[in-house]
Structures are given as C-alpha cells and as structure tokens.
C-alpha cells in the first residue's frame, strides 16, 4: 500500500492518443482549479457586498455551489490521470503477475460500466432541463441546463480517461494499480 497516490500518474508510453487524452484531462484540471479559485473570490465578494455595502446578495451562493459542482465533475478525469482517487489495494497486493493485471482490467471495466450508466441518465436529465427551459427556483433564476451540463461532461471525460487507462493497461505501458512487481 505504501505508495502516495500522486506518485504514480498515468503512463502513456509515447502513444499519441493516450497523450492527447491525458492532456485533455490536464486541461480539465486547470479549468477545475480556476472554478475553485473563482468560488473563493465570489464568496469573498458576497461577504463584502453584504457586510460593507449592505446590499443584496442574490446570485453568489448559488453560483459558487454550481462552480464547486462543476469543479468536482471536471476534476474527475484530471484526478484519475494523476491516480489521485484514493483506493484500498489489499487484494492487488496479494495477487501477482497475470492475475493482478486481470484484476486491474476488471476494476476498470466495472468502473467504466457504472460511469456509462450515470453518463447516459445524466445526458437525459440535462436534455430535459435544456428542452423544457427549466430554471432554478430563486430570484436569480439561472437556466438549469448550464449547471446540469457538468454531469454528462464530467462523467464523459472521466470515462474517456478510464478508457485510456484501460488501453494503457492492455498495451502494457502502465503497471496494474501502479504497483511495483
């Protein structure tokens, strides 16, 4: 278990497509970081407007929540590419060689399956909100398809990174679970 998650980012083995996907995930990480930074600034702006200027704060609370949700979802592929999603590798340490590789493949396939299910229904949900023009029930009343878009987009890009990881595993350019032999 003794590996820091971040110490073993995805290896691409020089394959262009894998590098492109990893690059895309990194760009998502930038956007995610900027969204988190923006929510810090907006929250401080809200406190200022309310406490110093004594004015209404209508949109800030909701905006920062949506930014945080967006940051989380867009951050998924980035953190995946850095192997930053914490896991318990008890069984992987117990098994060696081929069995470990098979297990790593199975884990990726199961993850991809559940992410695909969420992606499918997330798209449907987003489409409903977009088609019917749903709005949030507040004075600000933003269109809901905008924050809802984070779900299909984030899970879609996460699926792409998982797929790249699967390919890297099959091609043997990335070690199963990033473990030493």
């Amino acid at each position: 278990m003794a590996t820091l998650p971040s110490a073993r980012a995805a290896s691409t083995g020089g394959y262009l497509i894998l590098r492109l996907i990893k690059g895309l995930s990194t760009v998502c990480g930038w956007i995610s970081a900027v969204m988190i930074l923006a929510s810090v600034l907006i929250t401080c702006q809200m406190i200022f407007v309310r406490f110093v200027m004594g004015q209404s704060t209508i949109w800030q609370t909701e905006a920062v929540i949506y930014l945080m949700i967006g940051a989380t979802l867009l951050g998924l592929p980035y953190v995946q590419s850095l192997r930053g999603h914490v896991n318990v590798d008890l069984i992987p340490i117990l098994v060696k060689g081929r069995a470990r590789k098979m297990l790593a493949g199975l884990v990726l396939l199961m993850t991809m399956a559940v992410v695909s299910v969420i992606l499918f229904y997330a798209y449907e949900n987003w489409h409903f909100a977009w088609e019917r023009g749903w709005r949030s029930e507040t004075v600000w009343a933003p269109k809901l398809w905008i924050p809802y878009l984070a779900l299909p987009l984030g899970f879609g890009l996460y699926l792409l990174q998982l797929l790249a990881d699967f390919v890297a595993l099959v091609l043997g350019v990335d070690r199963p679970f990033g473990l030493e032999d």
Partner: peptide, 20 residues
C-alpha cells in the same frame, strides 16, 4: 500558484467525489 491550486484541486475533487 498552480502548485497550490492543483494540490488543493486534487484533494478536494477526491473528497467531493466520495461525498457524491
């Protein structure tokens, strides 16, 4: 600055994903 932000993004996303 990017180091600060990317480190925090990584830990936050990991925790928030677990929460969701």
């Amino acid at each position: 600055l990017w180091t600060i932000l990317s480190d925090s993004t990584r830990e936050s996303v990991m925790i928030l994903f677990i929460i969701g």
